[in-house]
Design a protein around this nucleic acid. Structure first.
Ligand code: SF4
Ligand code: SF4
Lengths: 129, 129
DNA sequence: TAATTAGAGACTTAATGAATCCATAATAAC
DNA sequence: GTTATTATGGATTCATTAAGTCTCTAATTA
């Protein structure tokens, strides 16, 4: 069970946006260069982050991406959910009702992890790669 | 990010072994029938559980699988690790030393989840499907 | 010795991840 | 208004992994 590479890229991209782009939008071209990844590929993840409401995009010349002013406290969980989706780690085919204990244990465990990631904000980290 | 179907089967198989087979070994054929899965496929997972030291196998007629007497307190984490392996959910290509904060946050989050799963024993659950 | 069971490996198929390419739309600079 | 610049979206390719089957072998008991 692993997070996709895309989540890795998204985390790093957000880290750059937080620490280096307070106001001016930065283009996907520049971001991709810093991360060492294809611009067209990185653009997919940035689009997901836009749709999740974490960042804002401005098209046209000198455009790019910048943080949403309204949302300074972006959590790790926000980014991960934006890329990976919010599906649960455990989904059995035949759902034997809500009192199933196997599901309860595994889902509670997942909630522990999510709670931790929800409390960690990307702005806490200040060391870009 | 999801656990594989194999983990699902392994959890259910262990649950059956705990609740229904205190002594007599139960064959993979019977287990597979109860779980509604192919015997040869289920056998892969049971073999992994054997190698992880969670259960014991006895070949020959009237053989099958039974719990290891020594290990009554099998945790969810034991089973999951036996099937999924112990690789981390987050592994970046270029490892910038141990002080990397991105890795620290995500791996700490994973540790939260694992700690929870380590404290939940399969013997706590007693409602087979 | 024969029947029964686990174990191991090759193999097939389907799904997903990772990435590229191209075509379109929107915006700003000129 | 035209053009350059940028994001957005879809289609497509390639590689990897999950999921499952088939078959042969080894061990054990009846
Ligand atoms: S017992 Fe729980 S995990 Fe198992 S099949 Fe039923 S609902 Fe799903
Ligand atoms: S900053 Fe951390 S997560 Fe990012 S590439 Fe370096 S070691 Fe990996």
């Amino acid at each position: 069970m692993k997070y996709s590479q895309a989540t890795d890229y998204a985390l790093h991209a957000m880290l750059h946006l937080v620490s280096e782009a307070p106001d001016k939008p930065v283009s996907v071209h520049l971001l991709a260069e810093k991360l060492g990844v294809s611009p067209t590929y990185l653009s997919k993840m940035l689009t997901k982050l836009v749709k999740a409401g974490l960042i804002h995009s401005v098209p046209g010349a000198n455009g790019g991406y910048r943080l949403r002013r309204s949302q300074e406290d972006i959590s790790f969980l926000d980014i991960i959910h934006a890329i990976e989706g919010t599906a649960s780690v455990f989904e059995c085919s035949l759902n034997h009702g809500s009192e199933c204990q196997i599901q309860q244990v595994v889902l509670d465990a997942e909630r522990q992890m999510e709670e931790y990631l929800r409390n960690r904000k990307i702005s806490d980290i200040t060391r870009p790669s």
